[in-house]
Design a protein around this nucleic acid. Structure first.
Lengths: 229, 229
DNA sequence: TGTACATCAGTGAACGCGCGTTCACTGATGTAC
DNA sequence: TGTACATCAGTGAACGCGCGTTCACTGATGTAC
């Protein structure tokens, strides 16, 4: 016969801020396992791409077991959602810093844009396989897709806040739309870079520096920012 | 004991221009089957997306059989390569028309760009699931990816030929790179549209007309084309 | 402080599903003489 | 014109592989009294 008041477990020592996509662990031990599984999965995906990573392989790397995996995650999809959540949360922090008006002081708008594009290119380069993984999964899993859209929207919102304080410099008739689309155009170019492995233009391969220059030029031209001032 | 001179089969009545990715059929009958299989696969992919289409389903729709399928294609990958080849070949024809300088006469550059963007958006909209299929496959199959890159390069080459005759109107320091990247920026935006199902900007969903307007504006601004002339 | 009990956590062999692929066989088409 | 023969084409039941997932069991942690 069950007790009317089940005993309250001690609070888990939340090392990670709890992930919404995963049932919270109830002991420190399982919290560690969760972390090790996430780290192992991420490392393997970065090394070989999602398609070549199996659950047995993840648990081996994490020093766990298949059953241990399924005690943490309902299924493989939930693992990916958790990875995505953690991934974007990390990026959010960087965006937050970058979009802080105080950080920029009296810097010119062109300089701000150039910095953002540098950050964008560097991130895509460093996280190539992770982005690829989410991209592939997004084609099938609505939650992955929605999370991606929400992230994109958060980025747009922050950058908009930053740039719309300089609304006077923007020639485009609808600055809000222009900023948002300008960002998506840049994202889209990097997406192709991820998919095709390289970016060719005018019969030669563009290096990261060249990509940044062109992305910056495109964004500024599209928004109609007068750089001669 | 085999004959020293095997009999020459009669030439196949090539209804389709032979696809490089598939062993050419040797009888009219198998040519028909090949066509029916390609059509069925394409129709099913357009309806439900590649992930939900199996070979038994394709052969059922085509009125063929699993064995018949494997008599035409080495495996499923070869089917996709054949579909891709046919797909891009169709698009090539459209590009050819669109990139013909004679077609445009004395039309303004802005009008040409607008027409190209219209074509781009319409194609992505109509072929959503096919493009998605190639995209997903490109992540794993090098041949699919390379074919996609070659197509992109053909498009760039044709459009470059067209626009570089008006090189004087282009303000960008490297017009060849600008045209190529401008196209890829547009492709990339539509790619995101395909992946996410819609295109949001400034907190509202953009319709096709609005997308075309913005893509045109972006391309013209990036190239530095003076529309006031 | 100690013992019983409940829950949480972890183990890894075994299962099973789905889908691509094979294969033994039948039928169709075309050639040789 | 006819018959034997070779090759092409098509059939569909059965196979099998890989990978995600389950499950019966052991061990660890924490609570109650």
């Amino acid at each position: 016969m069950p007790r009317s008041q089940p005993p309250q477990p001690p609070q888990p020592p939340a090392r990670t801020t709890a992930l919404a996509s995963v049932q919270a662990p109830k002991q420190a031990r399982s919290e560690q396992t969760l972390l090790r599984l996430l780290d192992a999965a991420e490392a393997l995906i970065q090394e070989k791409g999602l398609a070549d990573v199996s659950i047995p392989e993840i648990v081996r790397r994490a020093g766990s077991s298949v059953g241990g995996f399924y005690a943490r995650f309902r299924d493989k999809d939930e693992l990916l959602r958790a990875l995505e959540e953690r991934f974007f949360r990390r990026l959010d922090e960087r965006v937050e810093e970058l979009a802080d008006p105080a950080y920029w002081g009296r810097a010119g708008t062109a300089a701000i844009v150039a910095s953002c594009m540098h950050e964008l290119v560097a991130t895509y380069r460093a996280e190539n396989n992770m982005i690829n993984a989410f991209l592939l999964r997004a084609a099938r899993d609505v939650e992955i897709r929605d999370e991606g859209m929400r992230f994109r929207q958060r980025v747009s919102a922050r950058i908009s806040d930053l740039l719309l304080t300089r609304r006077g410099e923007i020639g485009h008739p609808d600055p809000a739309v222009a900023i948002d689309l300008g960002i998506q155009l840049a994202f889209g170019l990097m997406l192709q870079n991820v998919i095709f492995g390289e970016l060719r233009a005018g019969s030669r391969v563009l290096g990261d520096a060249a990509i940044e220059v062109e992305l910056t030029r495109n964004f500024i031209a599209y928004l109609g920012i007068d750089v001669s001032r």
